[in-house]
Computed example of a mutant assay.
Amino acid sequence: MSTPQGLREHEFATFKTATLENGMKVLVPQFIKEGDTVRIEVASGKYMERVRRGTRKS
């Protein structure tokens, strides 16, 4: 995933555009950094959550 640097003062209130490995562009929260793994809702293409490495949801 590729995304610009976040704005610290608006870290949780605003979104920025990120380009996923497959070329899809999605809006993600400011705290998402380049290289993070995110979960996207397939039907709408909306950001759902950041996926932490080494943890798995059941």
Results as ranks from 00 to 15, higher is better:
Ser2His: 05
Ser2Pro: 01
Ser2Cys: 01
Thr3Ile: 14
Thr3Asn: 06
Pro4Ala: 07
Pro4Val: 00
Pro4Asp: 13
Gln5Glu: 11
Gly6Glu: 00
Gly6Gln: 00
Gly6Asn: 01
Leu7Pro: 04
Leu7Cys: 08
Leu7Asp: 12
Leu7Ser: 13
Leu7Trp: 06
Glu9Asn: 15
Glu9Gln: 15
His10Gln: 14
Glu11His: 05
Glu11Thr: 07
Phe12Ser: 14
Phe12Asp: 14
Phe12Trp: 09
Ala13His: 10
Ala13Thr: 11
Ala13Val: 04
Thr14Trp: 14
Thr14Ser: 14
Thr14Leu: 15
Phe15Pro: 03
Phe15Gln: 12
Lys16Ser: 06
Lys16Phe: 05
Thr17Ser: 14
Thr17Asp: 12
Ala18Asn: 05
Ala18Gly: 07
Ala18Val: 03
Thr19Trp: 05
Thr19Phe: 04
Thr19Lys: 12
Thr19Arg: 09
Leu20Ala: 13
Glu21Arg: 13
Glu21Thr: 15
Glu21Trp: 04
Asn22His: 07
Asn22Ala: 05
Asn22Met: 01
Gly23Ile: 05
Gly23Ala: 09
Gly23Glu: 10
Gly23Leu: 05
Gly23His: 10
Met24Asn: 13
Met24Leu: 13
Lys25Trp: 09
Lys25Gly: 09
Lys25Asn: 15
Lys25Met: 14
Lys25Gln: 15
Val26Met: 02
Val26Lys: 03
Leu27Phe: 03
Leu27Cys: 04
Leu27Asp: 10
Leu27Ser: 12
Val28Gln: 01
Val28Arg: 02
Val28Ile: 09
Val28Tyr: 03
Val28His: 02
Val28Cys: 00
Pro29Gln: 02
Gln30Ile: 02
Gln30Val: 01
Gln30Gly: 06
Gln30Met: 10
Gln30Tyr: 07
Phe31His: 15
Phe31Met: 11
Phe31Asp: 09
Ile32Phe: 11
Ile32Leu: 11
Ile32Gln: 08
Ile32Glu: 09
Ile32Gly: 12
Lys33Gln: 15
Lys33Asn: 15
Lys33Val: 09
Glu34Val: 03
Glu34Arg: 09
Glu34Cys: 05
Glu34Asp: 08
Gly35Asn: 02
Asp36Ala: 02
Asp36Thr: 02
Asp36Val: 01
Thr37Met: 04
Thr37Tyr: 05
Thr37Asp: 03
Thr37Trp: 00
Thr37Pro: 02
Val38Gln: 02
Val38Cys: 04
Val38His: 03
Arg39Phe: 00
Arg39Tyr: 05
Ile40Met: 01
Ile40Cys: 04
Glu41Asp: 15
Glu41Gln: 14
Glu41Val: 14
Glu41Ile: 13
Val42Met: 11
Ser44Glu: 06
Gly45His: 05
Gly45Pro: 03
Lys46Glu: 10
Lys46Tyr: 10
Lys46Phe: 07
Lys46Asn: 14
Tyr47Asp: 10
Tyr47Asn: 08
Tyr47Pro: 08
Met48Gln: 15
Met48Gly: 13
Met48Ser: 15
Met48Tyr: 15
Glu49Gly: 02
Glu49Met: 09
Glu49Leu: 07
Arg50Ser: 06
Arg50Lys: 15
Arg50Thr: 10
Val51Cys: 11
Val51Pro: 07
Val51Asp: 07
Arg52Cys: 11
Arg53Asp: 12
Arg53Thr: 11
Arg53Ile: 03
Gly54Asp: 03
Gly54Tyr: 00
Gly54Met: 00
Gly54Glu: 00
Gly54Asn: 03
Thr55Met: 11
Thr55Ser: 12
Thr55Lys: 12
Thr55Gly: 06
Arg56Cys: 07
Lys57Trp: 00
Lys57Glu: 03
Ser58Asn: 08
Ser58Thr: 06
Ser58Glu: 09
